[in-house]
Design a protein around this nucleic acid. Structure first.
Lengths: 244, 244
DNA sequence: AATCGGCATACTGTATACAATTACTATTCA
DNA sequence: TGAATAGTAATTGTATACAGTATGCCGATT
């Protein structure tokens, strides 16, 4: 930790040859591409990758995330991994116990209820704001999504429909135009994704119905209705997933 | 304005070790000297210290936080400092620009409005929840705070009254019993602290009046009223501070 | 004088090194 | 056999080392 013991090495403060250590995570590293100029902080790359794996379920709740392993996995040093883990911890996807390390967050039933409560209210606020601001461009986007979604629902293309849900949330966040809210909700959404994903066809369809209703309320510039619908939507999604 | 290079150090005047090799961030006990015993991750200590200095204004918005300087200041290595900076960035108190470093967040007017909007709604939710849950212990606490506050207001002890505001928020968060909400609000509150602090006597008093009203609504188990009052309170506080 | 190019500087990003702590295992003693 | 314990391995916390990049200064060239 300190130069203490080693202080006397002062004579030759580690003038190692070119490659002092046999193992080096690859200079222009894991990113694969080269680079010359492209600087992408490794930390962010690790964050992205890990978030993806957590959200798609490859890293199940409770799974321990040992710094050394992860860093070997991605072929980077522990530092970016540490930072990535802490970043994810701030988002709530990862839990860090001091001196014990990180693991994928496992939510208690109570926490799930709490998440739903907060997220529901914020989605309501978001919908309300979206219904007030009427940016023509956003409105156009919403119209498009609404039509597209209805078409897909009729055609029973549930895969594409699920895809559209992301766009739905995105456009609504955009339309609300509150970046603070956007940030908070992103974190809450990520945390709830794992909890209730509309896997089966029925839910997917019902999900869309509710989304469509919210969109219509927003397009009709009815803030209160939009808010209520959004709140209900979150609660419904939570209830449905409880019936698993 | 740019604090450019040497603006404020960090508080401590000149604390350059000046010892060429004798300089080492604390052998085994170093921490003990400055902060607490050796257990307690340095990162957290740095976070606490820095948050304190940001919130009390010693580190003004826009002030650059250079890792090297901060680490020298606290006599630790850059690693805990980096982690602390990122922690604070996650809370929103610090802004990190890739490859450029960290600085105390400077909020635009728009962001202020956004913060108020979100915080107001969440405080409302919080008050509503608090008014529903009726834990006897929390109720007792609230009663105590209410009485104490009224007493202080009458006695014109504004210093102590300001102190009590913290307790007010704490107890209300506790009473609401939603840890997710608690987390989010803590971050939002920190960010708004700088923006509107009731410095002068008049505001402090009015502030308390509003707090008291919320408390009474909660104690009367009137969730809707509590919510409305909380929302208004945040908005009022924001408006008042704009008149500076 | 204005612009360009290079050099020195300062700082961040990332890698490795090592100490401190916890977790694990085997072993001894009752 | 079971509990206590010592010894070891695994893992985190923190320090230092080094490389790459932005920044600012200075001189040279036009």
């Amino acid at each position: 930790m300190q130069p203490t013991p080693t202080t006397h090495d002062l004579g030759h403060p580690a003038r190692r040859p070119a490659t002092p250590h046999g193992r080096r995570p690859n200079p222009t590293a894991g990113v694969g591409a080269t680079v010359g100029a492209s600087h992408s902080p490794l930390t962010l790359l690790v964050v992205e990758k890990m978030r993806e794996r957590i959200l798609d379920g490859s890293l199940p709740p409770g799974h321990r995330l040992v710094e050394g392993r992860v860093s070997a996995e991605f072929d980077v040093s522990r530092i970016p991994v540490r930072e990535a883990l802490r970043h994810l911890a701030a988002e709530g996807l990862v839990t860090i116990e001091p001196r014990r390390g990180a693991s994928v967050t496992r939510f208690s039933e109570e926490q799930v209820l709490e998440l739903v409560e907060v997220r529901g209210n914020l989605e309501a606020l978001n919908a309300k704001l979206a219904a007030r601001h009427k940016d023509p461009e956003q409105i156009a986007k919403m119209r498009r999504i609404l039509e597209e979604g209805n078409r897909l629902a009729d055609a029973n293309e549930l895969e594409a429909l699920a895809q559209l849900n992301h766009e739905f949330h995105d456009v609504l966040s955009q339309a609300a135009g509150n970046s603070v809210l956007q940030d908070v909700m992103r974190s809450l959404r990520d945390r709830t994704v794992l909890l209730f994903t509309p896997f089966n066809r029925h839910r997917c369809r019902q999900n869309w119905e509710e989304h469509a209703a919210i969109l219509r309320a927003v397009l009709n510039a009815d803030p209160e209705l939009a808010a209520v619908l959004a709140l209900c939507h979150v609660q419904n999604a939570a209830n449905r997933s409880e019936l698993d």
